[in-house]
Amino acid sequence: MAENDLNKPEIDMPAELRQQIAVTTLDRIYNWSRSNSLWPMMFGLACCAIEMICTAASRYDLSRFGMEVMRPSPRQADVMIVSGTVTKKMVPQIVRLYNQMSEPKYVIAMGACASGGGPFKEGYNVVPGVDKFIPVDVYVAGCPPTPQALLHGLITLQKKIEGEHIPNTRWYKKGEVEAIPVPILGPDLFDPRNSELINSETHKPLPVVETIVEGGETA
């Protein structure tokens, strides 16, 4: 531990105690310990997942930041790295996985696809950005982001966590955090929350099209 890493700087400590005792706030120690042991979920979607694997491998080495413990089970993971294109066929599973993660939980949208659809945005089976369904904490740009960029994203997430304040953080408030409704595959993907809107749109009377009789005179 670097000197004063944890100490509340304004507290004056005798020099001989500085290496052994820390006086700090609850916020600080919570955030400090949590941000240095983020366990990502082992969860790859597309090309970006390969760069995520490279980030975890020896050259870039995620474990320097306390993140090497990739968990295949959502129950044990703290951060979901959405690494790749989110498709309509896959998004119900992603939402379900997110709901299964225990709190506190964070989401990183890795790459152009997860952030906003990327090169495939216009595709009929593509969800333009995972943030249409789950809340995202950090967006990492790139297609694919280099391992350095992903590391930067993770460090940004650490910084964000360090700024958290227990009384107004979602998971420490009273009452349960509601699960996100899982979208359903119908004739196209639909979010059950939008049922009414969809219903009213699909049952709208057809716009009246004026037919022009070709070559004929108007009656």
Partner: peptide, 11 residues
Amino acid sequence: DNVQYPREFDP
């Protein structure tokens, strides 16, 4: 959003 539904579709 990137979705469309056939007419008369009732979720």
